[in-house]
Design a protein around this nucleic acid. Sequence first.
DNA 1: AAGACGAAAGTGGTTGA
DNA 2: TCAACAACTTTCGTCTT
Length: 326
Amino acid sequence: MDSPRGTKRSGQRTGQSDITRCPECGSRSVVEDVGRGERVCRGCGLVLSDHRIDMGAEWRAFSAEENEARSRVGAPLRYTVHDKGLSTVIDWRDKDTAGRKLSPTRRSEIYRLRKWQIRSRVHSSVDRNLAQAMAELERLSSQLGIPKPIRELAAVLYRKSIMKKLVRGRSIEAMVAATLYAACRIRQKPRPLDEVADASRVDRKKLGQCYRLLLRSLDIKIPLSDPIDYVSRFACQLSLSSPVQLRTVEILKRSRDLGLTIGRDPLGLAAAAIYVASIMLDERRTQREIAEVARVTEVTVRNRYKEIVRRLGIDSLDMPREVGGM
DNA sequence: AAGACGAAAGTGGTTGA
DNA sequence: TCAACAACTTTCGTCTT
């Protein structure tokens, strides 16, 4: 406060740190004086701000290893670990940090501590639930090949639903599957409900119920699932080339513009569009094959693709004849 | 024989009274 | 809670390649 430096200190102790031009003399020579914790204009000597906090470490390191060794922080917070990876663990060895044996009194003390620590950590009902749920989440998402960020999101959702007491009376597995399904949809990487249901030991119906509950109670806004989001996965499973994918997306966009997509199962739409594109680009797959990966029936593929062909006016080439009637 | 087609009946979910 | 409804599924016989 009583600092003598920067005689021209004036009212502008601006909080914004992104000023590079000096408001006094207009020169661009504002510099950061880390040693003093000040920002000073080299041109006129005005102190723009002082008593700045140095956010860096207080130690110095001269090599990468040293940097590693001195760092006191660990891995980032992980929501998929039930205690976020933060809880302290009391070692099971009866030695102190120097490796000496503990005195008998100390030993029994540690024993007691350990016991209570374990009880409080894993055995409170919420934590026990979480521990189990996170294990299930890990199992399920690795089986489905769900990437980390989405798992973390699912874990966050699960925590929220525990807070809201949604899990009570429902199976942990069902709730976990529902959060995972929701997380995938939020991140625009939807998986078919059936696929998630198959991978977990929850039937489709239960899963759907939990999912809807989740939406209502946590009031999450989930973008309507877009058939386009499925295209790359399906195309990949059918080993179709990228031109086919592009054409499929194009078809879906045009269908959407024509209002063909409202109220229709996105899976069926994606399947039908892929079918059409695969024929157009001469990489034909059977309705059966496509229906299988999209988890709809051939009939649905057929109905959708008929509509698409009719409405988009794709009656060209080797498309089977189509009748004008309705 | 496999794939495509379409009719008819059945199913699960949504909506509105 | 129930009926009506739209979309989808199942099933099956026929046609096409």
